[in-house]
Design a protein around this nucleic acid. Structure first.
Length: 226
DNA sequence: GCGACAG
DNA sequence: ATCTTGTCGC
């Protein structure tokens, strides 16, 4: 698998001077620092983050909302040229740089990050949600629209229904129905948040649409800042 | 060697 | 992610 990844971009760009092979090594190191069993109490602000691309340039948007009210209180954005290609498993090396720049412009530090991508449900258990959570040292949750790895069964049709996302012998996430009769989302722990809490929080933030409010707003903002 | 493959 | 029109359903 690694062979495929490296081979696919051996003549392409880098991330902070890193080769894809070094990126994989870094993920393994950072992954060892992930804390997934922490319990956190009061959450007042949550941030959603998303990025849109156009001809080699990325636009990142971070939107902070109140919790559980889900009212937008602040939006920050950043633009940056991207050279690292999209490689399944190495998404963070393409999206994290711009995302972190946008985040640095925020005046309100959120208590939780909801990321458009996977957390522990990743080949090396270190998806974009883990990457951002560790870099910012803020609890984070991975909420992806489709599967990267793992086996799963279709959850029941009603909102709140969910099934396990399994890789080998371990449960790496849950496939959750956020609304009646809509495609489920893939939830996994990112940083300092348990899978159980992640699912509970996402269901609480998915008020009217398939995607939880933070991600939905960030997605709109990212594509609107051009 | 042949598929699978977050956004 | 992005390229792109109409169309099915509530």
């Amino acid at each position: 698998m690694q062979q495929t990844v490296i081979k696919k971009v051996k003549n392409t760009a880098f991330y902070m001077g890193m080769t894809p092979g070094e990126a994989v090594a870094l993920q393994r190191d950072m992954g060892a620092a992930v804390v997934t069993d922490s319990v956190f109490g009061s959450i007042n602000h949550v941030a959603g983050i998303d990025i849109s691309f156009r001809a080699g340039t990325a636009n990142a948007a971070v939107v902070v909302l109140t919790f559980p009210g889900m009212k937008v209180v602040e939006t920050a954005s950043a633009r940056k040229k991207v050279t690292f290609p999209y490689i399944p498993g190495l998404l963070a090396f393409r999206e994290a740089p711009v995302a972190l720049e946008a985040f640095a412009r925020l005046s309100t530090i959120p208590d939780l990050l909801v990321v458009d991508g996977h957390g522990l449900a990743h080949p090396r258990r270190f998806g974009l949600a883990c990457h951002l959570g560790v870099e910012l040292d803020i609890p984070s949750i991975g909420c992806a629209k489709s599967r990267l790895i793992g086996q799963w069964r279709e959850p029941a049709r009603r909102k709140g229904s969910s099934t396990r996302l399994i890789a080998g012998e371990e449960v790496i996430g849950r496939v959750v129905r956020t609304r009646d009769d809509v495609k489920p989302v893939f939830i996994s722990a990112g940083h300092k948040v348990s899978l159980k809490d992640a699912v509970r929080l996402v269901l609480r933030m998915a008020t009217k649409y398939r995607l939880p409010e933070p991600i939905r707003h960030a997605h709109i903002a990212a594509g609107h800042f051009w």
